[in-house]
Amino acid sequence: TTFAYQLKDREGLTFVHPYDDADVISGQGTIGIEMLEDAPQLETLIVPIGGGGLIGGIAVAARAMKNDIEVVGVQTRMFPSMHAELAGKEPGPLCGGQTIAEGIAVKQAGRLGFEIAKELVRDVLIVDEDDLEQAITLFCNVEKTVAEGAGAAGLAALLAHPQRFSGKKVGIVLCGGNIDSRLLASVLTRALVREKRIVSLRIIGDDRPGLLAVVSKVIGDLGGNILEVAHNRLALDVPAKGAEFDILMETRDSRHTQEIIDALVAAGYPPRTI
């Protein structure tokens, strides 16, 4: 930012701040207008906060149209800058880390947005990275919509604080889909692991011909899909005449996974989830 201002002064340019600018904030406020025109029954709006321009504009517009509407902000636990300042704390020392919500990873909110938030924003909620990943996954799988971490923060707040919004008509702002395809793939795969639809099992048994075939048959007969197999004879925590198998498999859901685990136990090959 310092360099940008120096360049502006040196070359006589016009600097347009991305969020701490009255015209930018006014333009972002049209989101609040459109939301209430489409759904005037809304009681609460949840808006991601980075620099504070988006929530500032939406809060001004929405409160002008419907004075009793509640405007709630959301930030990540790694960058709770507005949350901290509104609580009278210095935000800088609290901000830092690798968050999936890069678009709202701002160490200090703009002054205009902060002043508006003090007057018009009811609360600022904090979400964790798991909440953001779950929100991205739901947007993709349910809504068939690609959302970046910052864009999905509103839904993440609903997931993280369900009691806070219980019984209310809530509008959330999906404000970005700029997510790297590899990161999106990783988030979706991690969701399968979290839901136990992809699970890695470790089985220790005798190192004899046919053992892997028996274990594979138990899994296959119950409809499990084996993705990878690693066969380790040299692990020191395995008997010299034994072998260790790490099996990565895909199932329908956590109940299906447990059925396969129970069948392996019954067959004499109790697995350990890793």
Score class of each variant (00 low, 15 high):
residue 130 D to Y: 03
residue 12 G to Y: 03
residue 187 V to A: 07
residue 189 T to L: 15
residue 246 D to K: 13
residue 20 D to K: 08
residue 45 L to T: 11
residue 154 G to V: 05
residue 51 G to I: 11
residue 32 G to D: 09
residue 26 S to R: 14
residue 122 R to S: 15
residue 84 A to M: 06
residue 144 K to H: 15
residue 242 G to A: 07
residue 78 M to C: 03
residue 1 T to I: 02
residue 43 E to M: 06
residue 163 Q to Y: 00
residue 178 N to L: 12
residue 100 I to R: 04
residue 12 G to V: 08
residue 98 Q to P: 00
residue 18 P to V: 12
residue 273 T to W: 02
residue 47 V to H: 03
residue 144 K to T: 05
residue 24 V to A: 07
residue 270 P to S: 09
residue 190 R to H: 13
residue 91 P to N: 11
residue 37 E to T: 12
residue 269 Y to E: 08
residue 208 R to F: 03
residue 193 V to A: 13
residue 167 G to H: 08
residue 269 Y to K: 01
residue 83 H to P: 01
residue 36 L to A: 08
residue 67 N to V: 08
residue 127 V to F: 09
residue 232 N to F: 11
residue 73 G to Q: 05
residue 31 I to Q: 00
residue 186 S to M: 06
residue 164 R to S: 08
residue 13 L to V: 01
residue 82 M to P: 02
residue 221 D to E: 15
residue 14 T to S: 11
residue 137 T to H: 04
residue 244 E to K: 10
residue 249 M to Y: 09
residue 182 R to V: 11
residue 271 P to Y: 06
residue 79 F to M: 07
residue 144 K to L: 06
residue 31 I to E: 07
residue 78 M to T: 14
residue 107 K to W: 01
residue 226 I to G: 02
residue 188 L to S: 01
residue 235 A to S: 13
residue 136 I to S: 02
residue 193 V to Y: 15
residue 142 V to A: 09
residue 200 S to G: 00
residue 270 P to I: 04
residue 47 V to N: 05
residue 188 L to Q: 07
residue 136 I to F: 06
residue 204 I to V: 15
residue 15 F to T: 12
residue 160 A to Y: 02
residue 157 A to D: 09
residue 88 G to I: 13
residue 94 L to S: 04
residue 74 V to W: 05
residue 72 V to E: 03
residue 69 I to R: 04
residue 35 M to T: 05
residue 14 T to R: 14
residue 87 A to L: 15
residue 110 G to I: 10
residue 118 K to W: 10
residue 33 I to S: 01
residue 83 H to F: 14
residue 28 Q to G: 11
residue 85 E to P: 00
residue 26 S to T: 11
residue 245 F to H: 04
residue 244 E to I: 00
residue 6 Q to N: 14
residue 128 D to I: 01
residue 164 R to Q: 14
residue 74 V to M: 03
residue 47 V to E: 05
residue 7 L to K: 11
residue 161 H to R: 08
residue 225 N to Y: 09
residue 82 M to I: 05
residue 56 G to V: 09
residue 113 G to Y: 10
residue 182 R to T: 12
residue 116 I to M: 06
residue 192 L to H: 03
residue 119 E to M: 11
residue 209 P to I: 14
residue 178 N to A: 11
residue 145 T to D: 00
residue 178 N to D: 13
residue 131 D to M: 07
residue 82 M to V: 07
residue 128 D to C: 05
residue 112 L to F: 12
residue 60 V to K: 12
residue 95 C to M: 07
residue 163 Q to R: 14
residue 252 R to Y: 04
residue 272 R to D: 11
residue 179 I to P: 03
residue 141 N to F: 03
residue 133 E to F: 13
residue 172 I to W: 01
residue 233 R to A: 14
residue 79 F to I: 09
residue 229 V to W: 02
residue 67 N to S: 15
residue 239 P to E: 04
residue 226 I to T: 02
residue 170 V to T: 09
residue 149 G to I: 12
residue 247 I to F: 02
residue 236 L to A: 12
residue 233 R to Y: 06
residue 39 A to I: 10
residue 32 G to V: 10
residue 49 I to V: 15
residue 169 K to G: 00
residue 209 P to W: 04
